[in-house]
Design a protein around this nucleic acid. Sequence first.
DNA 1: GCAATACTTGGTTATTTTGCCAAATAGTAA
DNA 2: TTACTATTTGGCAAAATAACCAAGTATTGC
Lengths: 112, 112
Amino acid sequence: MVILPNSKKENKKMDNKKLLELKSNTKILKAMSHPTRLFILEELSKCEKCVCELTEMIGVDISTISKHLYVLKNAGLVENEKRGLTVYYKLKSISVLNLIDFIRKVIKNNTE
Amino acid sequence: MVILPNSKKENKKMDNKKLLELKSNTKILKAMSHPTRLFILEELSKCEKCVCELTEMIGVDISTISKHLYVLKNAGLVENEKRGLTVYYKLKSISVLNLIDFIRKVIKNNTE
DNA sequence: GCAATACTTGGTTATTTTGCCAAATAGTAA
DNA sequence: TTACTATTTGGCAAAATAACCAAGTATTGC
């Protein structure tokens, strides 16, 4: 085996920069990786909805839904707007919509 | 609203069938949602590799890598083949490769 | 058979995630 | 002001996930 001059001979741990990049990339995937959040994304791909409506559809505590929405927002997948008492959420970009569609197709392919 | 004989009148909880469908759909996303597993998928998109090689590249315990590979296999993303002592892993289908590419693009778009 | 190698599995502990309740915040309206 | 509604936040307990080590399995070669 060739020993390259500039590489540590027995460097086992992954490069820290690479690790950080991977972590940031998984953020968006992680955000989508919960049944409730995937459902929310699917619903928001149809039209914007308030926390109340989503809570009603899903049937868990409103605080739980609020926290799920925070995760989605934090991952850059959705955005919100307050009108009066109500906070409306919608998908942030078209690429998120495409991703959902794409994943649906892959899943369909994989389970057939 | 019609009250079906077998349903509770104010059943807020989401339909169980829908929930199961969502859970199965998040399985593939969940499997991709870990830095190490995303890295493995990226590497396998280049060429098949054995557990040993992946362990060497990532630098954690081989049992940890083995368990990550199990998660990916269980989600239908990779498959393996034993040749001699060595177990080789590769992506299961071309659609998984496409998915990885697609996600990479979406992530790139979203972080710019 | 025995030893060596490549991997998987079981067990334990630490960390993260989830979901509920209660309390806090913000906007509306009397 | 007070009351009311929609949502968020804090805190806590339960569940899920991840990493390590040690032990087990399978294959090869002696």
